[in-house]
Structures are given as structure tokens and as C-alpha cells.
Design a protein around this nucleic acid. Structure first.
Lengths: 117, 117
DNA sequence: AAAAAGAGCAACCCGGGGGTTGCACAATTC
DNA sequence: GAATTGTGCAACCCCCGGGTTGCTCTTTTT
């Protein structure tokens, strides 16, 4: 009968922008690209997409504010890299919801199998 | 040296709307609420949030189009419930990226530890 | 039959997201 | 020093997302 920890409103407010940052095909592509080919500069990254360099800049800013990427200045370039911990955060949030879901299913099951007034 | 399967562009285009649907605090709250208290009607759900009933309707439509919830008409009510498989999908997508990330880290590690010209 | 409850529909508002172009600035390279 | 490469900044456009209000329709309830 152990209630699993529910996601607090605070957690939800942290999770929402995180998922929102993941909710764009170009940004997901950027993450995958950074995964597959390692840290890269802006022009290097934008060369792999159909949109303009400035569009990529904005996407990287969004990812950065969500904590999913970090950047370091190197000479005249800026090198972008993934931040794995935030990816793990998103993973954990989904885990929380999934567990709550599983628990709900179990309780529903128990409810259905019980004779009730 | 096995390359992990990269997320294909097709997968990315499926994943993006899914994460986008998760990228709103109210919608996450709805999912959690449906998890915690089971299937519920619109007014029942909207009673738990600060926004109007119509706003909740729109959020439920978004979740529905993302495949995260389903609804069934029951008398004058419409009952909304979670769709667990889509939650698992999101989970799987993050897994894919995480694995790619881990692999990238390993390759980076190997690269750093190698004497190169 | 009349009143109340639950949903659906439509119009509207406003802000921000995704995209673009154009120009300015810093760092390299020749 | 001059040309090139890599970014940054600003303005602008368009459209959609989140929210609202108001009205209608159907189903219960009394």
C-alpha cells in the first residue's frame, strides 16, 4: 500500500520547460548530432540542417536555457556540447510518471476485482 | 565498436510532437492527475486547475492528438484516461538518445586517451 | 415540463516561437 | 594591413499556442 511519491508542482514546473525544449524536431536533431559527432561549433552544426545559422543559434539558446547543452568560447568559435545530467532528469521525470501510472493500474485492477456496494 | 542505432529523422518527427505535448505544466498536471486519481470527466479534471474548463479541453485535445490520452463518451460525460504506451514511447526515445550519448562519451574517452598526430 | 449539469463550438485576444534578412564585430589567415 | 571566417545583435514577419468569454446543445435530475 505504499503510495509512490507524486510529482510535486515544483517538479512539474521544472519538467515542463525541459520537455518543451525537447519538443522540436530541429532541436532533437541538434542533440542527436551532438551525440553522434561530439561537440561542435555553430557553423559546423548549422551545416547539417536546412535552416539558417541564426535559427540554429536560437535553438541552441533554448537548449542552453533548458540546461541541455553548454557552450565554451574557443578563439573565434563557440563550441557546443551536451549536458547529460539534464537528459537524465527528463528520463527520471518520465520514470516518476510511469511508476505512478503502474501504481494506478494496480489499484484500478484491485478496485475492479473487489465487490463494492 | 558497435554503432548504436541513431534516431532516424522519421523517429525524430514522431518524438518532437510527443515531447511538445509534455512541455506544458498544465498538461503534465493533467497526466499526473489522471495517474493519481484514475479516469475522470472534464469538469472533474478542470476543478483541479486554475484555468477555465475550455482551456482544459484544449489541453486534453493536445494530449489526445499526441496519443497520450483517450476519451470515451458516457452519457452526458466524457471520460478521459491515460494511454500508457505513448508514455513508454517517450521513455524509449530518451533511452535512445541517452545510449547514443553514452557511446559518444566512450568514444570521446577513447579518443582522449589515444596519442594522435 | 422545467431546471440544472456537462460538454461542445466559435470568436477573439495577446504573446511568444520559429524563421528570415541585414549589418556589425572579433579573430584568423594570407 | 586586407580579406576571410565565425559569431553576435537587432529588427521584422507570420502563425500558432494558451487563455478567455459567450452561446448552444444534450442529458439528468427534480
Amino acid at each position: 500500500m505504499s503510495k509512490p511519491e507524486a510529482l510535486s508542482p515544483a517538479k512539474l514546473k521544472d519538467a515542463a520547460p525541459l520537455f518543451a525544449a525537447l519538443g522540436d524536431a530541429t532541436r532533437l536533431g541538434l542533440l542527436v548530432s551532438l551525440c553522434a559527432s561530439g561537440p561542435a561549433s555553430l557553423t559546423r552544426l548549422s551545416g547539417r540542417f536546412e535552416v539558417s545559422r541564426q535559427a540554429i543559434t536560437k535553438h541552441l539558446e533554448v537548449l542552453s536555457e533548458a540546461g541541455l547543452v553548454t557552450s565554451v568560447r574557443e578563439g573565434r568559435e563557440r563550441i557546443w556540447a551536451l549536458e547529460p545530467t539534464r537528459l537524465a532528469d527528463a528520463h527520471a521525470y518520465l520514470d516518476r510518471i510511469s511508476r505512478q501510472w503502474d501504481d494506478a493500474l494496480a489499484r484500478l485492477q484491485a478496485f475492479v476485482e473487489t465487490d463494492r456496494p
